[in-house]
Write a protein that binds this DNA or RNA. Sequence first.
DNA 1: AATGGCGTTTAAACCGGTTTAAACGGAGGA
DNA 2: TCCTCCGTTTAAACCGGTTTAAACGCCATT
Lengths: 351, 351
Amino acid sequence: MTKRPTIADVARRAGVSKGSVSFALNGRPGLAGATVEKILAAADELGWRPSNRARSLSVSKAFALGLVITRDPAVLSSDPFFPAFIAGVESVLSMHGQALVLQVVADGSEADGYQRLARDARVDGVFLSDLRYDDPRIDLLVELGLPAVTLNRPDGESPFPAVVLDDRPGIVAVVQHLLELGHTRIAHVAGPSEFVHAATRSTAFVETLTAAGLQPVAVEAGDFTAAGGIEATRRLLALPEPPTAIVYANDRMAIAGLGAAQAAGLTVPDDLSIAGFDDSELAEYVHPGLTTVRADPFHFGVAAAQTLNRVVDGDTEIPDVELPPAQLVRRRSTAAPPVQTRWQPPAQPPV
Amino acid sequence: MTKRPTIADVARRAGVSKGSVSFALNGRPGLAGATVEKILAAADELGWRPSNRARSLSVSKAFALGLVITRDPAVLSSDPFFPAFIAGVESVLSMHGQALVLQVVADGSEADGYQRLARDARVDGVFLSDLRYDDPRIDLLVELGLPAVTLNRPDGESPFPAVVLDDRPGIVAVVQHLLELGHTRIAHVAGPSEFVHAATRSTAFVETLTAAGLQPVAVEAGDFTAAGGIEATRRLLALPEPPTAIVYANDRMAIAGLGAAQAAGLTVPDDLSIAGFDDSELAEYVHPGLTTVRADPFHFGVAAAQTLNRVVDGDTEIPDVELPPAQLVRRRSTAAPPVQTRWQPPAQPPV
DNA sequence: AATGGCGTTTAAACCGGTTTAAACGGAGGA
DNA sequence: TCCTCCGTTTAAACCGGTTTAAACGCCATT
């Protein structure tokens, strides 16, 4: 509780000048070894830690990174990605004495968040998540002079390195899995198509099906929320020839869809197979357990933080970082399609 | 991208000294009105914003508040409370030019998070959530000289104001609701008893039942996770005289419990009524919709941030803030108990 | 005209570090 | 012996604000 020691205290104790202490602390050459020893000893006898504020002012760095998240439930609320991602980021920052500054902004105005972070010089760099097509934030950050990394690759040109976890293999694996079970009428509930990752997932869905010589029953636009998942599911089930399997772009929609199917009197997976994406905590515990795709958001956070730090340090020409793709997790919500369905031509008697 | 203007630039432009600019900006008395006008005009002609870093150094404030969260999934992951709470906090901070610093720490070591925040002088105060009995963090913060507010009231003495949202009325309402439906064999799946709010909920449960002249069938210890919810539910269903209704201390356990009950072949609510706590997003959309209790974590965040700011400003004797209690949300997962159950004595023929 | 008082303004110190240019001191060479 | 060079150390400026004590200008008293 007594005032903390300053660099002057350390200098006095070690019998040197402030400058020398600074040199010793930062391991700069030009100081005699013995002097360095003496200074460091004095420093930790006093338990001295250099003041972040003073350092911040003189070197013009914040020693902090920023994350802007919209208050939009489609992105933030109970999204299993961010908590784990943030934990990963923190695990890196805490080793560097850096802090994570969070900005939560109203639905449409993410730009404000970055503006504030830049205007107040609160951070040295930011994470750019939930990329949209032709995302205006990229130009904004360039203009603001704020270093960044993008989570996954943007569609256009970007001066920032990307940390990418390819969603395609996960979707491909889910569709393959359904095909192997014998499904031929598969539908997809996508996320909002303005998001790059949402579009990537639905494209992968369609392409995998096409490659197998099949047409998707439908691709319904969802919004990543449970409510949207319900709506989309109801529309699919109301089709004259409803699907026997539905692939959702995330677990929230899938779990809601599961509820909607059950409310409609269907048994999952006997009447309908359902698959999600994310492997959120509840996926394992709903009934039936949800087949889904598991990524590693913690490691995503680690990689993103490390990469962003390289950008902040002025490292140029940083290659994009590729993370291992998500894995299929098979649970009880997917099974073979019902043997007989209304629309199918009656089985031909064997010749 | 050109260097931002400093207070010296403004002073020069207005033809006054740095000191005067500082006075004008902070609305200090002693400056002639005309001078203030002149200075403010010069300031926004240049688009000057005082540097947070410089201010930070000279006034010894961080202009930031801190939140420490454990990486423990029981607290963080997909907990609907924090995202909304944080959004509420941010809505206050953004108006004051303050930032929110997040510390995510490993399971047991929350203390480290506060230590780091204090050592690095990153924040002016912190939010103390998920209080435990005899919580060591209170003494720690006193020792560190870090102002704080507690979310809900701690069990012992505390020098910090509390922002409280009483969980009791919510639990009481749930139990009343079940009693009105005719249930007499009700069980509870609690959170870890070392948490004050978990214990508050289970105490409220027991007391309400006792007041109605009933005994709880059982109070199982859960851990707020879905996995724990499953386990506890299985134990309850395996009792020789299983409950006809289960009240869970949070939605995650309740939704998992719902899955466990269905997996065990029970129909909810016909065979078993289930109620949660939190009204998380999925609660409305699982099948059947989950009866639960809804609080307002956003407003909780607003109140907590405002109160913490008063503490930080040196305001002493701040009264605790009471928030409106959570409301019961009735959905399909609760209904009258089955008319006949194994253990009941056969109905007496009318005399 | 000198003095006092008051409202206004400023110069300078300060916060706690980093950084640069200059000073210092001892060894080696002429 | 003197000069130079080089490794080591320091003094001082600087980052961009805030704050305090002193100075200033002006008017009212005496």
